[in-house]
Design a protein around this nucleic acid. Sequence first.
DNA 1: TATTGTTATACTCTATAACTATA
DNA 2: TATAGTTATAGAGTATAACAATA
Lengths: 144, 144
Amino acid sequence: MPANEPGDVAAALFLSIGVLVRRLRQFQAEGDLSLPETSVLRRLERGGPATVTALAKGEQISVQSIGSTLAALESRGLIERRSDPADGRRAVMHITRAGTHAMSDKRNVRIGRMTRALADGFTPAELAQLTAAAPLIERLAASI
Amino acid sequence: MPANEPGDVAAALFLSIGVLVRRLRQFQAEGDLSLPETSVLRRLERGGPATVTALAKGEQISVQSIGSTLAALESRGLIERRSDPADGRRAVMHITRAGTHAMSDKRNVRIGRMTRALADGFTPAELAQLTAAAPLIERLAASI
DNA sequence: TATTGTTATACTCTATAACTATA
DNA sequence: TATAGTTATAGAGTATAACAATA
């Protein structure tokens, strides 16, 4: 049984997630969703409608930085902006039917390739390990 | 027992690693190692001396892109460039004693914060899950 | 010719600063 | 005044193209 020293876990995770992100960045074909676009759509799909500030906080970027991503998604009809009737400052973003469609395995290149690689090269036990790791990685990001 | 559908695993991983990378990007203080610098040093530390091409391939970026990172590390004495006597085209990069020192928990802000967060907020069982996930994530990156 | 690496240039993603509108 | 969001500008990180040196 290994010791799983926090320092070793940290270094190993750091290297592996960096490589995966850079690898995923390489599949940017004409018309594909970008990395941040995919992430925002997935978040809306998972967590439901959210304000600009909430999305930025979830994505761990500034409110200003998420602006162009939201504008791009909105201009393609993948999200819809609704003003909050209770607070005129707030803009609540909703994923549209087209947005959900764009996130399907067939349409989304990155998620699709990850899905195929996982289905072809990983055992159910390994998929279970990755499934268990995802929320831990999110918790780690939130606790750093 | 959940089904762990590859599509769901892919989407969950995608979101979590994106958030962690963006969170890690935020700790860029004066003099700290950058994200790619930390990654390259860790790779040399783990895998031993490597050529420019091998490092670029490991990091999943182009040979051209890794150039500035290597130049920055070399100028600060954290890596050393040696020409391969057997092949004059090759430059073999070695981590120096100072480079290893810069990667220690105390000196490296990102790895250090990850290490502390893991030590403080995660159980041994959770650390074991993350330890198991890291090589799977690397394998996924390589198989996409 | 093919491979290794460098230099030059451009694009993507994110940050900070300054601003407007609403509370 | 404080909060939600936008616009403008800049920096980090990576890509492609063109090149030089060696195999």
